[in-house]
Amino acid sequence: DHDVVPEDKFQETLHLKEKEGCPQAFHALLSWLLTQDSTAILDFWRVLFKDYNLERYGRLQPILDSFPKDVDLSQPRKGRKPPAVPKALVPPPRLPTKRKASEEARAAAPAALTPRGTASPGSQLKAKPPKKPESSAEQQRLPLGNGIQTMSASVQRAVAMSSGDVPGARGAVEGILIQQVFESGGSKKCIQVGGEFYTPSKFEDSGSGKNKARSSSGPKPLVRAKGAQGAAPGGGEARLGQQGSVPAPLALPSDPQLHQKNEDECAVCRDGGELICCDGCPRAFHLACLSPPLREIPSGTWRCSSCLQATVQEVQPRAEEPRPQEPPVETPLPPGLRSAGEEVRGPPGEPLAGMDTTLVYKHLPAPPSAAPLPGLDSSALHPLLCVGPEGQQNLAPGARCGVCGDGTDVLRCTHCAAAFHWRCHFPAGTSRPGTGLRCRSCSGDVTPAPVEGVLAPSPARLAPGPAKDDTASHEPALHRDDLESLLSEHTFDGILQWAIQSMARPAAPFPS
């Protein structure tokens, strides 16, 4: 592969990997390779389809078979030569091979799209000592099968071997295949498990690692696999990028399955594409389908809103127990993405979901129960707010008499603000006073009005108090039968009158 990737590009890729991570280095090298001529790309395919690569990765054979028959990708048995050289000459001794072996032994695996480039050397060096003999053996194999790289107009793939297949390693990572398949204008990513390549439709969760975000852009890794992070704060999961590491605690105790298979379609829109997988259930989501939507993949363990709600429900009964003089119970939860139609709101002032922060849900004790107040519409209280300059209440639009249902020339009671006709409430011909108009209920007259088809109010509507207090003497005590009587009149003013009279009014101040 030294004929494909020059030394300066190799060093530039290593520097970019240390600065921005393996995914960015892979993407940059792939983009550079696509700008080369067809001879360089053909050399790339020839390096990929060597015999030892085909033996190690069985899924490469179907890719090789898909090439046109007129494309010669065979390799000479006596060494490598550029395709432009007409004579089959043995190339001179390859010093770059020693360079590659020494550099890969030092860096474990470079971040390139060629056999030198995919593992994360920093994480491997940190986690190597417990498994040094086995990992050293794996390093000797890295130059042979560490990076199976493929690129063409139909298929483009980048393979990364790992030393996680050490025997006896619980939940060992089998390997990473960062794979971009450009077929019919689409893009897919796969993962390699035990020599087999699994596409998103049959993606397997190998051991402790999972394909957290099938994305090839942005600074985030394709698999949430930063070796420096180790395990999740809650004892979460091992990262795919942690090559040759000792077994780590796999999943939280509440995880239903340690080796679950995540779905390959969004649980909201039932469509495929780039998904984020939940650590607590097999569901996966688009970032845009979450509520609120996320802009980037959160670091650490992530769970959907259903799993978060289940966790909150487990903690909430203990938080609601009476604990005198104790601060509110704080339950730190990872930043969760909410699927459509589901929402768990945190306290005000918290950062938005999706940031690399930890939301704190506070379970406050329930407030003391209070008697429910009568629910009145805002339009129902409008007549009470229509007060004239002299303190006389004006008529609201649409006000109707509670007896006849007519809204023409209605009066407004100064005591309960109900609309009424003087002739309907006082049919006996009582003279109307000039000021202080009161309806039949507030004036103490319980004589029913002779209106055909309208039920008369119940005599129990009024329960006047002592006459010594004029204001308190007109406080009506309405009961269920009074409400039914008012409802039978089918008037809004009657219902409003009952609601206003049912509310307690402050006692009249004593004259000074």
Results as ranks from 00 to 15, higher is better:
Asp356Gly: 09
Thr447Ile: 05
Glu296Val: 11
Ala310Asn: 05
Asp409Asn: 09
Cys439Met: 01
Ser299Cys: 09
Asp482Ser: 04
Cys277His: 05
Ser502Met: 00
Pro397Lys: 10
Glu342Cys: 05
Val446Asp: 03
Asn394Trp: 14
Cys289Gln: 13
Tyr361Phe: 09
Thr357Phe: 13
Gln393Ile: 08
Asp264Cys: 09
Val403Glu: 04
Leu308Thr: 10
Leu333Arg: 11
Cys304Val: 12
Gln501Ser: 04
Cys269Ala: 06
Asp264Val: 08
Ser245Gly: 14
Val315Glu: 09
Cys404Gly: 02
Arg303Gly: 14
Arg432Val: 04
Cys442Arg: 01
Gly444Asn: 12
Gly444Cys: 09
Cys404Asn: 04
Ser339Arg: 12
Leu252Gly: 04
Asp470Val: 09
Gly280Thr: 06
Leu287Lys: 09
Phe426Leu: 04
Pro334Gln: 13
Glu350Val: 12
Pro374Lys: 08
Arg440Tyr: 15
Ile495Met: 04
Gln392Glu: 05
Ala460Cys: 12
Phe510Cys: 02
Trp498Lys: 02
Cys281His: 07
Met355Glu: 07
Ala508Thr: 08
Glu350Trp: 09
Ala419Thr: 09
Ser299Phe: 14
Asp356Ala: 10
Gln325Leu: 12
Lys261Tyr: 05
Lys362Tyr: 15
Pro365Cys: 03
His286Trp: 10
Pro322Thr: 11
Arg412Ile: 10
Cys281Met: 12
Val446Cys: 12
Asp469Asn: 07
Arg438Lys: 09
Gly241Cys: 09
Ala449Ile: 14
Arg318Val: 07
Pro328Gln: 12
Ser305Pro: 05
Ala418His: 03
Pro249Met: 11
Val403Pro: 04
Trp302Cys: 13
Lys362Trp: 03
Cys413Tyr: 01
Phe492Val: 05
Gly280Ala: 07
Leu359Lys: 12
Thr471Leu: 08
Cys413Val: 00
His286Leu: 04
Ile500Asn: 01
His415Pro: 02
Glu326Leu: 10
Ala267Arg: 12
Val360Met: 10
Ala399Phe: 11
Pro247Thr: 10
Trp498Glu: 00
Leu486Ile: 04
Val246His: 11
Cys266Ala: 05
Asp377Trp: 03
Pro249Ser: 05
Pro292Ile: 11
Pro389Leu: 14
Pro247Ser: 11
Asn394His: 08
Gly398Pro: 10
His421Phe: 02
Ala467Lys: 07
Ala267Ile: 11
Ala449Val: 13
Pro466Phe: 11
Ala284Gln: 00
Ala288Met: 15
